[in-house]
Design a protein around this nucleic acid. Structure first.
Lengths: 361, 361
DNA sequence: ACACCGGACCGAAACGTTTCGGTAACGCGC
DNA sequence: GCGCGTTACCGAAACGTTTCGGTCCGGTGT
């Protein structure tokens, strides 16, 4: 790593085309050109201290001429801050996570932070865990955990020493979490269906290990209980349309349900498709409510009544909270939650009248 | 940043609960505990040089005891390498980009690299551009450009000195690009429809500034031309289901088309919804082919015939190529492209017979 | 005139790695 | 027993910032 260049610079180093890669300009180079010391350059770039206007101009000009860019690594080494937050999850390809990540990225960028994504493989054991851990620590100032069930993996330790916030996670965990009001959303869905006259509402839940799925299921259960209506068994899916389709077949075969609340829109889509295949009309014979309000939901057939979920707000709040915790580790962890309004479209209606309702099959 | 601790360490610094944040262990600490010098520790962690087994054990044990983690910033400063690649795009919330990013992240992680996402706002001018640029340079060893039309933004300069690869971009640009075989996919879609007996095929294209959209449109055009059939005017959308719906209304009103090739599945969905609203049956009156093969496409009504697109392969190839270029800037830039097979489902059929076909309204 | 003060700036010491150049210790052939 | 190459290690110099502790200087109150 030595420079290896003689101090008595011989006539111009070869900057010729195809020549040696020339080292990018450093603070010291700027300082030399501007005729100041390097820490004055530092003061100018950080803007944290007084610099006389004339000096400042000279420095800025020199930076311009040389095309100076601060070296992130050196800064991080000196300050101990990376100005980077890590986002840790199973996948960023899934709809909700992708939207949340985008919001996180924008919000972080506005605050001068960059975002590193760290994915942990779902079905991976052993050594890779350590790799993830090693990746995560020391290179980020804080972490947003976007798939909180990662915490359930034995042996996966999050780096200590940096704050962690959980997106859509269980609040009684060891880390602060940010949640939209899923409970209200699920309750709104159930109440809407009951209000239409359905005797009860079935639930097509997300995977058991997902906290979001758990919370939606719990709210569904509570709403039914509060209404004093019978509580059907939960049907489980894995968020995918395929799993929704399979659940739909089962529900159609059972032939009891008149209303189903699905824990996300993709499963609702598969569900509706299965019902259609089975000759059950939506919403004539059976009403369906989704969750998420994906951009495509309005164009399903029928257009899906669903709970709107604000992933963008979720991501932004995660960043805000995390930055507060980075600045002041004991900061207040309370955050505002976004509302989850029900968007009523065409997939819900009153239950079929008694006459034609029971023998439909 | 000075340590400020007396060299003659007084009896045990207070590591008491709530005590001062104690500096993480450094290489030197490990070296001291193991009774070796710090560069031997370096040799052990890098594994690049011979170390006697006994020494090696002592060092490893010491690292274990102290919970040593290498400091990324210091390493980056010393080596000039960050072991990080940046992914630059307009948004990671969109379906294709999200899947590509996920694949990039996994592939990079397997190679020991981490991934930083950098988003540039679509409708933003001026100073923010510089922010993006500043963010991008010096902190990454290479860049994957996931929304190549970013290059069309005047004034946005990519950092020089690091390799850049373009995902799904125009090959005659200044950077190497990785493309799946979009042309074959689009041609397959058109040929399928023509093979079913349609006189011609309309095209619902993606936004004009998208290279992927351009390429699909060009392939559609070429396929029609090769078949010697009339070429209808292109209808443009913006990838969204909403824009597909609007296009569908126009196409239904015109009443000429019997087959439409949509440049992605979401637009195809909106299109089908508009046709349905207009009383045009799919595929009875009009056939629709999509592009992407999103997981939900099989559950649309009708199930969508579409071109399968392998975003995962795309992302992986981008990383492979980029890592080759990082290691050897003049490396061969040729990459394998993934096939784009047509998945035939229920949204395509032969055109309506002449009798009932023309007067459908 | 003098001490004093604050503003603008500088010299130099960290931050924790990697790596260059060396150096003891050791085996080996002559 | 002497040179010589190897092996296993170490001392110390970078890498480019930030920041501590000063210094120089021009003003101000007495």
């Amino acid at each position: 790593m030595r420079r290896g260049e003689p101090d008595t610079a011989p006539n111009g180093r070869p900057d010729a085309p195809g020549g040696a890669a020339t080292r990018p300009p450093s603070q010291a180079d700027v300082a030399a050109l501007a005729g100041v010391s390097s820490q004055t350059v530092s003061r100018v770039v950080s803007g944290r201290a007084k610099v006389e206007e004339a000096t400042r101009r000279r420095v800025v000009d020199a930076m311009q001429i040389l095309g100076y860019r601060a070296n992130t690594a050196a800064r991080a080494l000196a300050t101990g801050r990376f100005h980077t937050i890590g986002v840790l999850g199973f996948t960023f390809g899934a709809h909700g996570n992708a939207r949340t990540l985008q919001a996180i990225s924008e919000q972080a960028q506005d605050a001068g932070y960059s975002v590193t994504v760290m994915t942990v493989r779902r079905h991976t054991e052993g050594a890779l865990r350590e790799a993830v851990t090693a990746l995560g620590d020391q290179a980020v100032d804080g972490i947003v955990l976007i798939d909180p069930q990662i915490l359930d993996r034995p042996g996966l330790e999050l780096p200590t020493g940096v704050p962690v916030v959980i997106s859509d996670g269980n609040p009684d965990r060891r880390y602060p979490s940010v949640n939209n009001d899923q409970t209200a959303g699920a309750r709104g869905a159930v109440d809407h269906l009951l209000g239409l006259g359905h005797r009860t509402v079935w639930h097509l839940a997300g995977p058991r290990d997902s906290y979001a799925a758990q919370q939606r299921a719990a709210a569904w259960h509570a709403a039914l209980k509060a209404a004093g209506v019978p509580i059907p068994p939960i049907v489980y899916g894995d968020w995918s349309a395929q799993s929704g389709y399979e659940a739909g077949r089962a529900i159609a075969t059972a032939g009891e349900a008149t209303a189903v609340f699905a824990a996300n829109d993709h499963m609702a889509l598969g569900l509706m498709r299965a019902l259609d295949d089975a000759g059950v009309s939506v919403p004539g014979d059976l009403s369906v409510v989704g969750f998420d309000d994906v951009a495509e939901a309005a164009f399903f057939k029928p257009p899906l009544t669903t709970v709107h979920y604000d992933f963008e707000q979720l991501g932004r709040e995660c960043v805000s909270l995390l930055l507060r915790l980075i600045a002041e580790p004991s900061a207040d962890a309370r955050v505002a939650v976004a509302p989850t309004p029900l968007i009523v479209r065409g997939s819900t209606a009153p239950p079929p009248s008694r006459a034609g309702g029971s023998g439909r099959h």
